[in-house]
């Protein structure tokens, strides 16, 4: 492996030129097309995008949890700083290597959308948390049990010692989601990937889970990548937001940049399409057309087929280069590129 390089800017994770394709019967589908992002220590990066935007694929690749028919392009780079301070290149590992197993769970943890199907139904909750702890921490069984019960308590599950002995079906949806967060956090990861963690939950429970994640982040100082399609949720949790569409990042900035001064036509349209409480009864501004099929991706800017401000002959030829609007705010759109020239 190449010499370990230091990370810039207090970054925990640096992803460059990430390109992931899938071999399918209908041909090769490129789900993520040359994206670049980084996650700072102790911060939350929000990734917003509609279905098929590649938000899950790009982050699951950090743990190399992609199906067998996936191809990570040779030029892709995912650099991650381990707890020991060593910087590793995740794309270089074999998918079943010991190094990778250590990172999965121990350094990077994942919580999914469906609390129903992410636990094994035949083991108790406690058993499943303990298993994770024993894998990644050098502790005895008794200590692992203590850690597990303590974690269940921390995520706000009442009566943790009793819940420890229960099976997943005995817990409600909100509790199971908390239990999953407990599993993820019991290994003390430095990066938590939350893939739509509150999507299937009721608003009241969603609010509790978001609060809990904020608290735990402050306490444990971990970084979070938060994936969702709900802009309201992301505005509450993220420090930085990245907007993805069809495998490309279209805009990146601080939460304030994106929510208050969105520049890309897609981000603007997305924000206008959300029903808000002050527009009761009015027509919503929909984005016309459908998301193109990944098999027939548009050439150029992926959004041009639905964009109101499309410039024929420019947008449909090549992907725009990033334009730096401020220190924190970057947009990929020809509207702004021209102004700079």
């Amino acid at each position: 492996m190449a010499k370990t390089k230091e990370m810039t800017n207090n970054n925990l994770l640096e992803v460059k030129d990430l390109k992931i394709s899938f071999k399918t019967d209908e041909g090769i589908i490129t789900a993520v097309d040359g994206i670049k992002f980084s996650v700072k220590r102790g911060q939350t990066l929000g990734i917003v995008g509609e279905s098929g935007s590649g938000k899950s694929v790009s982050t699951w690749s950090i743990m190399r949890l992609l199906p067998k028919n996936s191809i990570i392009d040779k030029k892709s780079s995912i650099k991650f700083q381990q707890k020991s301070g060593k910087v590793v290149e995740i794309t270089k590992f074999k998918s079943n290597s010991r190094e990778l197993r250590e990172i999965r769970g121990g350094e990077v943890a994942l919580i999914f959308q469906e609390p129903m199907s992410s636990f094994s139904p035949v083991y108790t909750i406690g058993n499943q948390i303990m298993e994770a702890v024993l894998q990644h921490r050098d502790v005895t069984k008794e200590e692992a049990q203590e850690i597990a019960i303590d974690m269940l308590d921390r995520v706000g599950i009442s009566n943790p010692a009793q819940r420890f002995k229960q099976y997943p079906f005995e817990l409600s949806g909100g509790m199971r989601q908390r239990a999953m967060i407990a599993v993820a956090l019991s290994m003390n990861p430095s990066l938590l990937i939350a893939d739509e963690p509150t999507t299937s939950l009721d608003v009241t429970i969603q609010a509790q889970i978001l609060e809990l994640m904020n608290e735990l982040q402050e306490e444990l100082g971990m970084s979070i990548i938060f994936i969702t399609h709900n802009l309201g949720v992301i505005a509450q949790v993220a420090d930085e937001i990245e907007v993805m569409y069809l495998g490309k990042i279209l805009e990146r900035g601080t939460t304030n940049d994106i929510i208050h001064e969105p520049q890309h036509p897609y981000t603007q349209a997305l924000l206008k399409a959300i029903p808000r409480l002050d527009t009761i009864g009015e027509r919503l501004t929909a984005i016309s057309g459908d998301i193109p099929s990944p098999l027939s991706r548009p050439i150029g800017c992926p959004f041009y087929t639905r964009c109101e401000k499309v410039m024929p002959g420019i947008c449909d030829v090549k992907m725009p280069e990033p334009t730096q609007l401020s220190d924190t705010h970057t947009v990929y759109c020809f509207l702004y590129e021209e102004k700079n020239v």
Binding site: S172, G174, V203, A207, Q208, G232, A235, H260
Partner: peptide, 22 residues
């Protein structure tokens, strides 16, 4: 329920009423 609606404005702090129990 109303207090738990996520606000699309990052500057507005959410103060959800915590319902105890299930």
């Amino acid at each position: 329920l109303m207090s738990a609606i996520p606000e699309v404005d990052p500057n507005q702090e959410m103060n959800p009423v915590n319902l105890s129990g299930e």
